[in-house]
């Protein structure tokens, strides 16, 4: 039952975009005046309809399957969760179908079923309670390739963080398939900053950081990035980013890590919640 629920979450994410992202793309089309930017956004919106009607993946790069698991201490089926994820991924690769995206870096051999060493990526969190929550993220290579890490001197402060994010956007340019959602992770260490940054791209659009300083920075960065004029697909226009989400952790006194992670407009995610008996519900995260 756990496998079935995870399989359905994968399939749904591949075929249907969360409604917050879809709405943000529709709003972007209203803002754009350049014929090229409008033509791109119209094609994206037509593509969403074609995917849903045809039961086809939105994008041919169905991503590296990535899971964020919140495992309740008392969840009765916890021993089988890892196996359930692996078999759900294999089945989805065959049946949705997904593109096989797990390649051996030394031989360039494709495993063919989206599993391999470290794939799928699974982040485990043990939490209180007797349920199970599994968040799925399908992120393509184009936007993963523009991930950036800045190890700033703490004296650079907020202006330094801002400059780093603008720099990451300029370097990314058309590559990550904009409009993108920008995730920023501040603090932690090098690995933690990037991990938090990627997780931040999964926050629903329209939500703000609960910290007012951070929320202001999010808003300012969104305006600044879009004011650069790179637009959809980097062909010029008003919408390069649909949202900027900043998450933070405490930092070491000597370090100010800033991780930047972007996800393309095809920000495919799904959440499946299991009850102790294994019954489940698929939600929009």
């Amino acid at each position: 039952m756990v496998e079935e629920g995870i399989y359905r979450a994968i399939r749904r994410a591949a075929i249907r975009l969360p409604s917050d992202v879809q709405k943000a793309l529709e709003d972007a089309l209203e803002r754009e005046t350049s014929p090229m930017a409008r033509s791109i956004l119209e094609a994206i919106l037509r593509n969403l309809r074609a995917a849903e009607e045809g039961g086809l993946p939105i994008c041919q790069d169905t991503g590296t399957p990535t899971f964020y698991v919140e495992l309740g201490e008392g969840f009765p089926l916890k021993a089988g969760v890892r196996e359930a994820i692996l078999s759900a991924v294999r089945r989805a690769t065959e049946e949705v179908p997904l593109r096989p995206n797990a390649v051996n870096p030394w031989t360039n051999e494709n495993s063919g079923d989206n599993t391999g060493r470290g794939v799928p990526i699974i982040h485990w969190d043990v939490v209180e309670g007797d349920g199970l929550r599994v968040r799925y993220l399908a992120k393509g290579g184009g936007s993963e390739n523009v991930s950036a890490l800045y190890m700033l001197s703490p004296s650079r402060g907020i202006a330094g963080i801002e400059r780093a994010v603008i720099d990451a956007a300029l370097r990314a340019g058309p590559k990550p398939c904009p409009p993108v959602i920008v995730g920023v992770g501040v603090g932690g260490g090098a690995d933690a900053a990037l991990k938090v940054a990627k997780r931040a791209t999964m926050r629903p659009l329209g939500t703000k950081s609960p910290d007012s300083t951070v929320a202001e920075l999010e808003e300012r960065l969104l305006e600044e990035i879009n004011s650069l004029g790179m637009g959809p697909m980097g062909l010029g226009g008003r919408t390069y980013a649909l949202g900027v989400h900043v998450e933070w952790l405490h930092r070491h006194p000597a370090s100010l890590p800033v991780g930047v992670s972007m996800i393309c407009w095809a920000a495919r995610r799904a959440l499946v919640e299991f009850r102790p008996d294994g019954s489940y519900e698929i939600l929009e995260p």
């Binding site: 094609a43 994206i44 037509r46 593509n47 086809l56 993946p57 939105i58 994008c59 398939c177 697909m233």
Partner: peptide
């Protein structure tokens, strides 16, 4: 020429 990135289902059609 640029094909809109991610616009896969439309291309399948």
């Amino acid at each position: 020429a640029q094909h809109p990135g991610g616009v896969s289902a439309l291309a399948v059609a």
